[in-house]
Amino acid sequence: MGVANFDAFYRKNASFYGDRPALSLRYFLDKFEVRGGGRGLDLACGQGRNAFYLASKGYSMFGIDESSEAIAKLGELADTQRLDVSGKVVNLTELEIESQQYDIIIAYTALDHVSADEGERLAREMMKGLAPGGYLFAAVFMVDDPGCCGKGGGVSETAAYIRHYYQPGELREQFRQLEPLAYQEEFALDISHSWPHHHSMARLFARKPLH
């Protein structure tokens, strides 16, 4: 995943991906009237922009990332903002999630930073870790993204760290055991970091059945 380079990105910028949470995450939480509360897990959390938003909604958030710089910054921000957010440096390929422990699990561009096989294993861990009725939010880059195989101009500076670009419908199929609440695929402008550039992304918001 290029941890050393991600450390450098985070070291140079106190808020590499910005301070605001992913707009799609906010939208889904509002649309489906998710009240918050309980435990939450943020995979590849970075400096915590999504984790802190979920904490502000009442979740006790735990973030994991392979970058020690990111986790250090997350800890500093948690102290400053006095929100219930903590984190740990963990390799995603080695992650095991406790069964039925989390009320929400998010993976915003995490599954695509590992190989296809490792992503399948990680998806199973996420589904295992959700409590009945818990929510899952995942977003991945797709095969027509400009970063795939170096295609197109204005590619993000972190495009080289994507290990698996998803096919249409693949993310939804990966979590077929869950109840899909919303699924979207789009090609959109990203101005959250570096220069303006475009991404092709798939996003899924789903819920674990109660039974």
Results as ranks from 00 to 15, higher is better:
residue 3 V to E: 10
residue 5 N to T: 14
residue 5 N to L: 13
residue 8 A to P: 00
residue 10 Y to G: 13
residue 11 R to V: 00
residue 12 K to C: 03
residue 13 N to E: 11
residue 13 N to S: 14
residue 13 N to V: 08
residue 14 A to G: 05
residue 15 S to G: 12
residue 16 F to A: 13
residue 17 Y to N: 05
residue 18 G to C: 13
residue 19 D to Y: 14
residue 21 P to W: 13
residue 24 S to V: 13
residue 25 L to M: 10
residue 28 F to Q: 05
residue 32 F to N: 01
residue 33 E to P: 00
residue 35 R to F: 00
residue 37 G to T: 11
residue 39 R to H: 03
residue 40 G to K: 03
residue 41 L to M: 09
residue 42 D to R: 07
residue 43 L to K: 07
residue 45 C to E: 02
residue 48 G to L: 08
residue 49 R to I: 05
residue 50 N to V: 09
residue 51 A to Y: 07
residue 51 A to D: 03
residue 51 A to G: 09
residue 52 F to T: 10
residue 52 F to R: 11
residue 53 Y to G: 07
residue 54 L to K: 11
residue 56 S to M: 09
residue 57 K to C: 11
residue 58 G to E: 04
residue 59 Y to D: 08
residue 59 Y to W: 15
residue 62 F to I: 11
residue 63 G to P: 06
residue 63 G to Y: 02
residue 65 D to W: 04
residue 68 S to Q: 05
residue 72 A to G: 06
residue 74 L to K: 07
residue 75 G to N: 14
residue 75 G to Y: 01
residue 76 E to R: 09
residue 77 L to D: 06
residue 80 T to G: 01
residue 80 T to M: 10
residue 80 T to V: 12
residue 81 Q to H: 10
residue 82 R to S: 14
residue 82 R to N: 15
residue 85 V to A: 08
residue 86 S to L: 09
residue 88 K to L: 14
residue 93 T to S: 15
residue 97 I to N: 10
residue 98 E to K: 10
residue 98 E to L: 09
residue 99 S to G: 01
residue 100 Q to N: 12
residue 105 I to L: 14
residue 107 A to N: 10
residue 108 Y to M: 12
residue 109 T to I: 11
residue 110 A to Y: 11
residue 112 D to W: 01
residue 113 H to T: 09
residue 114 V to R: 01
residue 115 S to L: 04
residue 116 A to Q: 12
residue 117 D to H: 04
residue 118 E to F: 00
residue 119 G to Y: 01
residue 124 R to V: 11
residue 124 R to A: 15
residue 127 M to T: 15
residue 129 G to H: 07
residue 132 P to S: 10
residue 132 P to T: 14
residue 135 Y to M: 04
residue 137 F to G: 04
residue 137 F to S: 01
residue 138 A to V: 15
residue 142 M to C: 06
residue 143 V to H: 00
residue 144 D to W: 01
residue 147 G to P: 00
residue 148 C to N: 13
residue 150 G to D: 03
residue 150 G to L: 05
residue 150 G to F: 03
residue 151 K to D: 04
residue 158 T to M: 08
residue 158 T to P: 00
residue 160 A to S: 08
residue 160 A to D: 08
residue 160 A to Y: 06
residue 161 Y to A: 06
residue 161 Y to E: 01
residue 161 Y to L: 05
residue 163 R to M: 09
residue 166 Y to N: 04
residue 166 Y to E: 05
residue 170 E to H: 02
residue 170 E to C: 07
residue 171 L to G: 06
residue 174 Q to H: 05
residue 176 R to A: 15
residue 178 L to A: 07
residue 179 E to N: 08
residue 180 P to R: 10
residue 182 A to T: 11
residue 182 A to C: 11
residue 183 Y to E: 02
residue 184 Q to F: 00
residue 184 Q to I: 13
residue 185 E to T: 09
residue 188 A to I: 12
residue 189 L to F: 07
residue 189 L to D: 01
residue 189 L to G: 02
residue 192 S to Q: 13
residue 192 S to Y: 04
residue 192 S to T: 15
residue 192 S to L: 06
residue 193 H to G: 02
residue 197 H to F: 12
residue 197 H to I: 13
residue 201 M to D: 05
residue 202 A to E: 07
residue 203 R to T: 04
residue 205 F to W: 12
residue 207 R to Q: 15
residue 207 R to Y: 07
residue 207 R to E: 12
residue 207 R to P: 02
residue 208 K to M: 12
residue 210 L to K: 10
residue 211 H to Q: 14
residue 211 H to F: 14
residue 211 H to A: 15
